[in-house]
Amino acid sequence: MTTTAVAVDHADQHGHDAHAHPPTSTGVSNEKVAMWAFLGSECLLFGALISTFFLYRDRAPLGTVKPHDLYDIPFTSGSSFILLMSSLTMVLALSAFRRGEHRRSSVWLATTAILGAIFLGGQIYEFSVFVREGMTMKTNPASSAFYVLTGFHGTHVAIGVLMLLALVGMIARGKLPQAKAEVIEIAGLYWHFVDVVWVVVFTVVYLLPL
């Protein structure tokens, strides 16, 4: 029996995917460790962007519009709520897949992707309103820092949506067997991280007073 076969057999016996990988020195699959290491490094990327925003958030020549003058808190709160709930649907997708309910898992994954797309639509709408009000990337240091931070986050959400749609496609074509539930878990880790970053961004960028 090959190593993979042993691992899959082991996973089937325990009804859980946690050990469905070749043995590693950490006891955790290399893919999962790699995703966590990547997320750790992403903390540094977003830390830099948030710090830059903090530094420049009140830097604007007189007569130019600052992000704080244009925020629509009720609208952004709605978007934040949608993204938070997408973390719930993501975790329900993983839970359903682990129980062998692939169809239900697909529905939850698609719901997560739709919620992510709604959040992205909200961000595009917000940006377009800001530009109409005269705040572009080049208006002042505060606006540049705002667009770079929220734009980078939006890009991460867009990549996450594509990842989720790819998973839905894989399940539909039967290319994601039960023993590979960890693939969904790893995509979920990325998605939850994107959500957790927005938790920080929403508070420090939108809610904290100047």
Binding site: V33, W36, G40, S41, C43, F46
Partner: peptide, 9 residues
Amino acid sequence: LMISGLVLA
């Protein structure tokens, strides 16, 4: 892994 990334940041 996560905590070290956070603390470092």
